[in-house]
Design a binder for these strands. Structure first.
Ligand SMILES: [Zn+2]
Ligand SMILES: [Zn+2]
Ligand SMILES: [Zn+2]
Ligand SMILES: [Zn+2]
Lengths: 178, 178
DNA sequence: GGTCATGATGATACACTATATCATGGTGGC
DNA sequence: GCCACCATGATATAGTGTATCATCATGACC
């Protein structure tokens, strides 16, 4: 998980290994193209922060990012990283997981209808056992939320859906081990 | 809002008025009965915190609660209120709104199938204009989330759904005023 | 060229949110 | 009495997020 729902499991509870380098580079290239097309400035700083988020391969906190950012940018301070994160969220390049106060790269594959489309509907599955997270994009959930809100005359801007539970990997391990 | 979806609007952006005293008292009585039946100890401290949450009539932060709690309990400290809040959440008497780092009394009416049933499915609508919040309990949303998770072999424990947007009241005000 | 508005970053300080840890005291079983 | 269990008191610290002002680059405009 932590990459996409059908991926093999690799979350924060286990390997801590990052994306393969090529994945990150490709994502950065796509991000740059998206921002260019949109007139948004993916500056060097913002690109560095995005790279760090992607390289972590798991939800990462703002201050952990700050520590790493200081490796390449001494004097970086909390606002440095928070401003970059705000930009990246506005562009849909990363998401914040509220329950974890942490940030992850958007796992949406290009060509699934929306390519980093502004705020795309998404949900997070968070495993309480291994800490892995999976971003999913279930239209049924998005539709149900939109419907419930509309029935109350509520105009939806953004939706946060975060499910805590046990991932398939851990569940099968449980079933085997007892 | 802030009470139930069909209520007249009264959120943090406007009146700041609390529930009517009777509502709070009735809720406290129901909470006491629920805890008693369940073998959970709704102590004086926990009851005080619950009362403060209910009286605020809107999402309220832990430290705002702490300030008020000190009126009746000098020497109260952060752990005092956080421990009470943890208990109240476990009992389903209050909910935390993650996006706001704030707490609200559960608006679920008694007799809607689950009476403070342990973790009941719920969603929050948060108005970005006036700050009001509404707790809703849409079965369609809960079902869609459960289905999406089940298709991935994910076992759901708790679900957080928080929708940010414009409430019906503010939307109609916008339509009128331009 | 000079002026100005805009937006990004630097830099400092601060506010807000939450938990760890150990001590104290009450309640009830045995 | 003794002990296990739980709730609370009390202190300290960790973690997360903003406010504010200064500086600098860019590009529009005259
Ligand atoms: Zn995404
Ligand atoms: Zn897992
Ligand atoms: Zn509720
Ligand atoms: Zn509103």
């Amino acid at each position: 998980m932590t990459e996409h729902a059908h991926d093999a499991h690799h979350g924060s509870g286990h390997g801590h290994h990052a994306h393969r380098g090529g994945d990150v580079e490709a994502s950065l290239e796509r991000a740059a193209a998206t921002c260019l097309a949109r007139g948004a400035q993916l500056t060097e700083l913002r690109r560095q922060v995005l790279r760090l988020v992607l390289e972590s391969g798991q939800p990462i906190g703002a201050y952990a990012l700050l520590d790493r950012l200081r490796g390449e940018r001494r004097g970086a301070a909390p606002p440095t990283v928070y401003r970059a994160l705000d930009f990246l969220m506005e562009q849909g390049l990363i998401h914040k997981i509220e329950r974890l106060n942490a940030f992850v790269g958007c796992a949406e594959e290009p060509g699934h209808g929306h390519t980093h489309a502004h705020p795309h509907p998404h949900q997070f599955l968070i495993c309480g056992r291994c800490g892995s997270t999976a971003e999913v994009c279930d239209e049924g959930v998005a539709h149900a939320v939109a419907g419930a809100a509309a029935r109350l005359g509520f105009v939806v801007h953004r939706t946060t859906v975060e499910v805590e539970g046990i991932c398939a990997h851990c569940a099968s391990a449980d079933a085997t081990a007892g």
